[in-house]
Design a protein around this nucleic acid. Structure first.
Lengths: 194, 194
DNA sequence: TTAAAATTTGACTTGACATTCAAAGTCTGA
DNA sequence: TCAGACTTTGAATGTCAAGTCAAATTTTAA
């Protein structure tokens, strides 16, 4: 990658970050391209130099976040751990990522209110992939006898719902650190499976 | 209440219902006053005859939903049931209400992206009231020894998060009825406390 | 140094709503 | 039936933000 390409990529990265941050704050529809630009001390015109339109910018940003968390999850999957420890770690990693990246996992729960067509398909695909991985973790635990028999789909939704909800109410001002909080929640949720 | 007042109230009720239904579908910012009116075969001008503006319409609608679910919860609180049965029932009633009314409890998790000032305060107040009631249910169960010791706040958030999340993925096409689903989820969540 | 390429700017266009309102239509009670 | 009150309409207005673009500025590389 040439120097110039690196610079462009860096700029795009900054813009994506700004976009996600403002959107986490104000919501997708309420954030303007000017908000996103202003945060970086640029004008909205510059943003359009790097991104075709608002939807593309948000799509790319969101896609990267999903891919990164997917990668994290895959890493946990690959580790040499007991079923319990693995699921536990997956949950903690998930929460830490979601909270620190302020993604809300994101735009709330309804990608179809933001994306359309191929973009929407891709986002849904990535989400499903993630969900499937979590399913697998639970499945494994049940098969090796670590977890009790449950309706995997429902329990998975419970776990994801509870974890993602944490992003909404977590406040850095609280007495618990993100790590402590993630640990607590993971332990409580594991009780469903033990 | 006079006949006319009744008619007006009925009309307002219809409009509120239409508003909630369209918003559940498309999200707050994406639904226009025309969408809401069109669903009732009126023009948007008429809607303004009944409601000052969009925010007020949505505020009133949302407030009523919150009040109704609060009332339901109070009724459960007042019943003669064991702690376990009571919390279980509260959860089931909650999910059934949220799913059938399609409220998402709603507008997603962030009322501050929709309401302002006094309206926002009132909505937050109602939500807190609801959350406090759930807390109470857990508290009672712990005190009478039915539940194990837990961090009530966190477990409460887990429960509410898991339940509200169900609204998003529940589909009437699935193999489970709302009742079955609510029952399953309630049972799984209770395991955290037993 | 300098000319071409890459970036940035900010004014401009456009379209989509929210909201208003005067006029038209409908109902109600005397 | 009729006057006045109540409703509805749809066109008009205002605002706001997305997206465009030619000109200005900065960077790059020969």
């Amino acid at each position: 990658m040439s120097l110039r390409e690196k610079k462009v990529e860096k700029k795009k990265e900054e813009i994506r970050e700004s976009a996600m941050s403002v959107i986490a704050e104000k919501g997708y529809h309420a954030t303007t391209m000017e908000d996103i630009a202003a945060k970086l001390l640029m004008t909205k015109g510059s943003v359009y130099y790097y991104f075709k339109d608002k939807e593309s910018l948000v799509y790319e940003s969101h896609k990267i976040l999903l891919e990164q968390s997917m990668e994290q999850l895959q890493n946990v999957l690959a580790e040499e751990l007991s079923s319990v420890a693995k699921l536990r770690k997956a949950m903690i990693v998930h929460m830490e990522y979601v909270i620190t990246e302020r993604t809300d996992f994101l735009l709330g729960a309804k990608p179809d209110q933001v994306f359309e067509g191929a973009h929407l398909q891709e986002i849904l695909h990535l989400r499903n992939q993630y969900s499937d991985c979590m399913n697998q973790l639970i499945q494994q635990g049940i098969q090796d006898g670590s977890f009790v028999q449950v309706d995997i789909k429902i329990v998975n939704y419970i776990i994801l719902g509870a974890m993602n909800n944490a992003v909404i109410w977590y406040s850095p001002k609280g007495s618990k650190s993100i790590q402590e909080l993630a640990n607590s929640i993971a332990d409580y949720l594991l009780k469903i499976l033990l």
